[in-house]
Design a protein around this nucleic acid. Sequence first.
DNA 1: CCGGTTCGCCGAATCGGTTCGACCTAGATC
DNA 2: GATCTAGGTCGAACCGATTCGGCGAACCGG
Lengths: 338, 338
Amino acid sequence: MNIGEIARRAGVARSTVSYALTGKRPVSEETRQRIQAVIEELNYRPNAAARALKEGRTRTIGLVIPPASQRLTDMQLGFVATVVDAAARADLDVLLSPSGGEHERSFERVVTGRRVDGVILMEIRLEDDRVTRLRQSGLPFVGIGRTSHPEDMTWVDVDYETLISQCVHHLADLGHRDIALVNRSAELVAAGYGPGHRAQAGFTRAVAQRDLHGVHACCADDAQAGLSCVERLLAEHPELTAIATINETAITGMYRALAQAGLAVPKDFSIAGVAARHLAENLDPPLTSADVPTIELGARAVELLIQRIADPGSPHRHLLAAPPISLRGTTGPARPRA
Amino acid sequence: MNIGEIARRAGVARSTVSYALTGKRPVSEETRQRIQAVIEELNYRPNAAARALKEGRTRTIGLVIPPASQRLTDMQLGFVATVVDAAARADLDVLLSPSGGEHERSFERVVTGRRVDGVILMEIRLEDDRVTRLRQSGLPFVGIGRTSHPEDMTWVDVDYETLISQCVHHLADLGHRDIALVNRSAELVAAGYGPGHRAQAGFTRAVAQRDLHGVHACCADDAQAGLSCVERLLAEHPELTAIATINETAITGMYRALAQAGLAVPKDFSIAGVAARHLAENLDPPLTSADVPTIELGARAVELLIQRIADPGSPHRHLLAAPPISLRGTTGPARPRA
DNA sequence: CCGGTTCGCCGAATCGGTTCGACCTAGATC
DNA sequence: GATCTAGGTCGAACCGATTCGGCGAACCGG
């Protein structure tokens, strides 16, 4: 069921079948139809490996995701879904590679075995050796996230620094003066996880600008951790009246801790954050948050990667998203705690 | 940077390099080291396409997921994560293909372009033409889920029928006599979505066995739908005191509807369901549910697929998981509603 | 000293496409 | 009527690996 078989049955040369399929040279209407008929009869489809070998490209992109062991956040899932979707729309397949931990081989295979034409890299650290490896391999890539030297790579990212800063300003406008930032896990931040550091920077900046009192806390990515984190914060800092957070996954736990402490949201305590819209809207009460446009960012990442593959020498482009804060049900005027 | 270049620099034939790498024929220790040195110096990795072409296999498996447009449930995500993980562990890459909707081409490419050695298919309908296509293509595949004729395919699945039946029996044991089943969306059920139908069958059976009064309701996969669905159920069936459900995504909305109706869980109203453990544990109160062992099922699916690829003629195997119900905080003795 | 193994390696064929040069024919141009 | 052009097709080379048959050298027993 290869191109030779088609050619034989249609009574033409293999090259003619190829041209009939690709249209790179004219083929008479009559011949084309004869070939087409045979192809449909045998349900023939060109062998992807053979084509990739000769053409030097695979029509496949790699998507490097965090390892499965650590649960993906709603936002990360949104990225994966839209990347797959956008790629399918462009007739590209997506090869998944869990990087980090024990799966080095997977990343290595994808990067170095010419299995893909380009890579989209998620969960980038400020210093990220995967970026280094990709760079020296010459494979086109786009980051969802960026390193500390973002100039010489192409990326899309969420402007956590600005967004957390805006959250703090919003809370300050409501009269809050003692605000905590609930960050992602301590390990992630220690490992140089970009959003964690940038959120902290934005928090520090805004707190200084408004002359507030800020508390920084790390929190693992699950509801249980959110609960105990906020319990601890409330105990150690009785003056707190508001939280800003980028930790989506822990939010339900944070809600629970506040409820258990007898604090009503937003009457007694306010929360503002950065989250996927879907998540924010489905919380109870719905979260006042900057809604990360995952769909747009994911699609844009694919688009940029396609451009990069087509013209690897083109200048690097960047997209920093800073969506406005959607006021929902979790922020209100400050009220001193009992 | 191909095998010829390595051969040249090492002063041997290309075939020798190949044998040194694969070990399929003996190569002297000295020659092997010389070759190895060149390989490491140039950071050479064999071209995946060329190898796939010659070997006739790609060392890649396809994972067919529901289209991104419909959000994946926690359980589905669990499957994706563990499949990717298990595949990576077996040195297999995973090609993602969103099927359904507008992405027919993606599925077609994966199935028919010999891009993968086998396929794992998720979200299977009772009658599923993707199964038909896979079957006639001769490509090995494993279902996570099964059709209405499950004998002649290999699959792993969750025994929704038994599990929902057990939920009902558990609720009946607690004295509940008026129970609703909250199913997945009406469209999904109408389209012949297996879990929906099997859950309904189990529900009907248990209700009959215990001589109960059962109400069946479909509900879209989001919190908002869960809220309005339960609101409606409470209004139309004031006698209800318990819900059994397989709709993970709608559960938070269901909680909210009960709370708004002034019904405390589990004091005034009980809920039992089938869900990913992670989700059940993180609800407030934690859900009494049969915890679907996604990790085991996903890993097993990969394992079965690998066997099937190795020996396509081997008999079909099946794994039907019926985990026990974990009693958490959402079921208690029946108490007639006001 | 000779026939038979074994070891280590080479050369060539092969997988299934794409692509380039060449050829033939028919119609247009002058 | 000779020359040119364009359309339509063919044959062969090529992409980068794997794999099979075979060949020379070393080694063995008789």
